[in-house]
Structure formats: structure tokens, C-alpha cells
Design a protein around this nucleic acid. Structure first.
Lengths: 157, 157
DNA sequence: TTCCTTGCAAACGATTTGCATTGGA
DNA sequence: TCCAATGCAAATCGTTTGCAAGGAA
């Protein structure tokens, strides 16, 4: 859980990750508390965005849901965590790109699970070109792109 | 599945749209009732996915929320309407691709509004290539791709 | 007449919040 | 010390559902 990963393209090790997050929180007069550390550690060890319920399942009842949500809220406004809304009524959270690296998602239409997907550099480049090209044709300022692929995961196939 | 779609840009006229939808509903032993017509007509006149509340605002209180949700549910299982979940706690609905044509979305990070975006043929081709290329590298069966661009809309800029 | 639909109100589930208590810098 | 953070319980909010009445084939 509190493990890190060294996938190419991924950025920060857990230790330096904690340091960075601590700094970020301090900048916002917020503390890096036990609950928040638990949330961050769990997210860092995940292979995709996790819902509040899933996080609590991993963490255990030592962290009440209300606290969990509050941790996610703070980490969100501080820019450490980003929410995703892939299925009705359930938000899923993951570490922001500056901590996790840029990636996309495989969203299972059946069970709703979401898995991270890192594109090869060459693909990523094409995606970026597309977004820029599009942005220049409309009165809209692109910030992110969410190139999610929906389908059926191996478990549900 | 009642196929159809005459490609570039938008597809079916409102009248033939109603006909197609009527058929589709009949195939599922469902009726094309007043409420369902109101929902379809409103969606057909929209420039992007709309939430239940937004739909009711356009339709008026002559259609209670519970009925509206039930209409959306039926139209959904029948394949006429597709839900999107872009913002916490609010689902947005739009007509399925076989009725509306394939397109993408501009999602405003500020106000949550979603606008349809049709890509030029050439772009669309590239996106399709990307998805196929990716699908062949993972144990996952792609069905759709959601190439949404998040940013700031002109009103919120 | 037979079912599908609708309305209303109550029920639900995910998320949020008030308030008193705890804890960290 | 002092204010942010936490826990619990109650409150919200979008959405769903039970049930009796309405409507189309």
C-alpha cells in the first residue's frame, strides 16, 4: 500500500512524494496528518482511481468516512488529489498528474472499475497535437484532456 | 439494433428521429409517451448533455422529476439516451451516437457545462487509430472512447 | 381488459456539515 | 497555547422506488 512504483514515466518516490505533499499542504496552512497520509499512501499504491468506499476498504475503519472525505477535499483544493466521475453517484480519486505522471484510463462499462493506462510517448504526442489543434478552433481554453477508453475489462469479459 | 446514421455532422431529422425512436421503443415493449417525447425533443434541441434538472427547466413542471428520471432510464436501457458523469453528483444525458452522430465534449472546469464538439474528419480518424492501437496492447476490449477536453468555457473565462 | 406509465411521497446512498473534542506545531 | 483536524450524528442532494391511479392498445 504505502509502496511506490517505478514505472517509467512515473515521477516521485513515496518519500519525496510525502515531502512534496507536505510542502504543498504547508503552503495552504494545512497539516499533513495521519488521515491524509493514509489516503495519500493508499492512492499512491493504487493502479487506478479509487472511490471513498474503496479507499476505506483498504485503509480500514480507523479512518471514518467523514474524515476520509474531508481529507480528500483538502487534498483536492490543494492540488494533490483529483476527482473523477465515471459512474453515477460515485466519485473516484487519484493523485494529481504532477505527482503521478500523465496517463489515461480504461473504464469498464460493466463493473465501473478504472485502470490507469500510460500511453507510449509517440501516442501521447499525437493526442497532444489533437488537443492543441482543436483548442485553436473554438472559443474554449483547454486545460486537460481526458482521453478515456470505455470498454469491457478482462474480468468482466 | 436499428442501425442508421448518415455521418458527417448531424444525422436524423426530428421527424425521422421520432420514428426511429418509436420503433426502438416498440421493440422493447415500451411506448413512446408524452414524457418520453418531451425528453427526446429537449435533448435533440440541446447543444450538449443536459442534467435532469436542466431538462426539467427546459420542459417545465408538467413533467415531474421522478417521471423524467424514469423516462431517461427507459430511453437509456433501450439505447436511445446515454448518460455522462462529468461532475460530482450530477449525471448528464444526451442522445446516443446512432441518433446524434459521433462527437466529443468540451467540459468547463469552472461551471461544469458541457458542449458538443464535432471533430473534423481527419482528426477523428487519428483518434480512431489511437484507440485501436491502444486496444491491441492491453487485455481490454474498447467499445467507446471519451475524448473530452477540459478547460474554461468562454462565459467563465 | 390488460399492462405499461405516471405522480406523489417516502426511501436511498453518496457526500457534506454542525458541533464539541482532540491533537499537532 | 491556539487553531486546524477529527468523530459522530444529523442533514443534504441527486436519484430511485412502492403503490395506487391513469391511459393506450
Amino acid at each position: 500500500m504505502a509502496e511506490n512504483d517505478n514505472r517509467p514515466g512515473n515521477t516521485v518516490t513515496t518519500t519525496s512524494l510525502d515531502r512534496e505533499i507536505g510542502i504543498r499542504l504547508k503552503e495552504h496552512d494545512a497539516r499533513y496528518t495521519r488521515g491524509r497520509r493514509l489516503v495519500v499512501a493508499t492512492l499512491a499504491g493504487s493502479d487506478g482511481p479509487k472511490s471513498a468506499a474503496e479507499l476505506q476498504a483498504n485503509i480500514g475503519s480507523s479512518l471514518p468516512l467523514s474524515s476520509l472525505y474531508r481529507s480528500l477535499a483538502v487534498l483536492g483544493t490543494v492540488g494533490v488529489v483529483v476527482p473523477h466521475f465515471t459512474k453515477k453517484g460515485v466519485a473516484r480519486y487519484e493523485l494529481a498528474e504532477w505527482l503521478q505522471g500523465h496517463h489515461h484510463h480504461l473504464v469498464c462499462l460493466d463493473c465501473g472499475a478504472v485502470e490507469d493506462l500510460a500511453l507510449p510517448q509517440s501516442y501521447e504526442e499525437k493526442v497532444r497535437e489533437l488537443v492543441e489543434g482543436i483548442g485553436s478552433t473554438v472559443s474554449f481554453t483547454p486545460v486537460n484532456h481526458a482521453f478515456d477508453i470505455e470498454g469491457i475489462c478482462s474480468r468482466c469479459a
